[in-house]
Amino acid sequence: MSEFFKLLKGGNKPSLTAAIVNTIIAALKAGAFFITGNVAMFAEMMHSIGDAANQFFVFIGSALSKKAPTPRFPNGFGRLVNLVCLGAVLLVGILSYETIKEGWHHIQHPAASSGMAISLIVLGIGIILEFVVLYKAGKEILHDVSVKGSFLAPLTTSFAHLNRAKPATKLVFMEDLVATSGGILAFIAVLISHFTGFLQAEGIASIMIGLMMFYVVGKVFLDNARGALGETDEQMLVHIAHIISENPHVKDISELEVIKEGEFLHVKLVAEVDPSLSFAQVDDIHDVLKDLILNQQGVTDVTIAFDEDDGIKKWVHHKDPQTILKTHD
Rank of each mutant, 00 (worst) to 15 (best):
Val147His: 13
Val217Gly: 01
Ser278Phe: 01
Ile107Met: 12
Val238Thr: 15
Val282His: 07
Leu162Ile: 10
Asn75His: 13
Leu83Val: 11
Val216Pro: 05
Ser15Glu: 13
Met208Trp: 03
Ser96Val: 03
Val220Phe: 12
Asn163Val: 10
Gln200His: 03
Leu269Cys: 07
Arg79Cys: 06
Ala186Pro: 11
Gly138Lys: 06
Gly93Phe: 09
Met45Tyr: 02
Ala225Asp: 09
Tyr135Phe: 13
Cys85Leu: 15
Asn224Arg: 03
Phe42Gly: 01
Gly311Asn: 07
Leu185Asp: 04
Phe214Gln: 09
Val316Tyr: 12
Phe4Ser: 07
Leu134Gln: 06
Asp176His: 15
Gly227Val: 08
Ser2Ala: 12
Ile24Ala: 15
Phe59Arg: 00
Leu292His: 13
Ala30Thr: 10
His105Met: 07
Thr196Ala: 12
Pro154Cys: 02
Leu325Gln: 15
Lys166Ala: 14
Phe56Ser: 06
Leu185Thr: 04
Thr180Trp: 01
Gly37Ile: 02
Tyr97Ala: 14
Val273Met: 03
Phe131Arg: 01
Phe198Arg: 00
Ile204Glu: 10
Glu234Cys: 01
Ile20Cys: 14
Lys313Ser: 13
Leu123Phe: 09
Gly103Cys: 05
Gly61Ile: 05
Met116Cys: 01
Val267Asn: 06
Leu199Asn: 01
Arg79Gly: 06
Asp291His: 15
Pro69Ala: 10
Ile204Met: 04
Gln281Lys: 08
Pro110Met: 03
Ser114Thr: 15
Val288Leu: 11
Val216His: 07
Ala32Arg: 08
Ala40Cys: 09
Gly10Ala: 05
Gly124Glu: 06
Phe306Leu: 03
Ala201Lys: 01
Ala68Thr: 04
Val58Phe: 06
Val238Cys: 13
Lys319Trp: 09
Phe73Leu: 06
Phe4Cys: 00
Glu231Ser: 02
Leu95Val: 02
Ser254Leu: 09
Cys85Pro: 06
Ala153His: 04
Val21Asn: 00
Leu191Glu: 14
Lys326Asn: 13
Lys148Ser: 14
Val258Met: 06
Ile49Arg: 04
Asp223Glu: 15
Gly298Leu: 02
Glu44Gln: 15
Ala19Pro: 05
Ser119Gln: 01
Ser150Asn: 11
Asn75Cys: 00
Ser276Cys: 05
Asp320Val: 04
Gly76Phe: 05
Asp301Gly: 04
Lys13Pro: 15
Lys101Gln: 03
Ala225Phe: 12
His109Ser: 10
Ala63Cys: 10
Ala186Gly: 14
Gly298Gln: 01
Val299Ser: 13
